[in-house]
Amino acid sequence: MTATTLRQRGPKHLLSMADLDRDDIEQILNLTESFAEVGERSIPRVPALRGKTIAWLFYEDSTRTRLSFETAAKRLSADTMNFSVGSSSVNKGESLRDTVETIAAMGIDGIVVRHGAAGAPRQVSEWTDASVINAGDGWHQHPTQSLLDLYTARQHLDELDGKHIAIIGDIKHSRVARSNALGFSAMGARVTLVAPPTLLPSTLDGWPVEATHDLDAVLEELDICYLLRMQLERQGQAVVPSLREYHNEYGLTSARADRLPNDALIMHPGPMNRGVEIAGEVADRPAAVITEQVANGVSVRMAVLFLLLGSGLDVVDEQRAIA
């Protein structure tokens, strides 16, 4: 993976949190504030991306990410093109590359890709001139989710430096965990992964994190308690004896939520399995900012779409190249 940052490359694609340094992330989060204001207007629409076309290329199920991107694009007045894999020529055996080249030939400015294979969006970015945004690739990355989590956390905690976040649950199969481990540590937070041994990756070499199997040991020192969904559809074999046992050992029960510090946040990327990773009652507490995460998702995605497609920063780079 290349270590070039958003600014060095020019803001062309958003593929992985590993491509963003702290300044990049702060730029996006600050820009998000301007776009959050648009959502509060009685007519929440600005013409910033008028005339731009964005295609959705979703090879995996998604409701909230897709709706969130769709809302963001509409608020910026972009045109959107929907490519649903179920009813397309992918069923007729068309390869990813041919599909991308076909869509690109229609003249688009951006492609938002979700794919089951890690690295698919990066591959797509090499086949097209359009900006590519990763909306989730396998177990690998989901950068806009991480950005919206960072934005939400920053709204409540002001500063993420030195804050302690535990990411709890199915780390192994989670692109959200991988994105957030990078995102939160880039912002100076301390990241602890909490999971049973079967749900941790086989190695954590190179991850800027600590790991533990004991949730109760860290609860009382957390600023953010980040719960992951048990991804039953990604798990090849039984990795926990039963969901009930998982809930008892790693779920955020009412008793555990009571032990969190008073101002600690409870976050979840959704969709939630109430009664598995989080008790139903806990998800409705004021400390749980789960619906705020969804609302902020639209603003963050507006900021990302604008930065890549509308800000004109690439124009500056071209002018500099000419000069």
Binding site: L31, S34, V38, S311, G312, V315
Partner: peptide
């Protein structure tokens, strides 16, 4: 965000 010169020069919203 309502300007007509997007793409002609860098435009960034920065004020509230």
């Amino acid at each position: 965000m309502h300007r007509d010169d997007f793409g002609l020069r860098p435009v960034m919203p920065e004020a509230s």
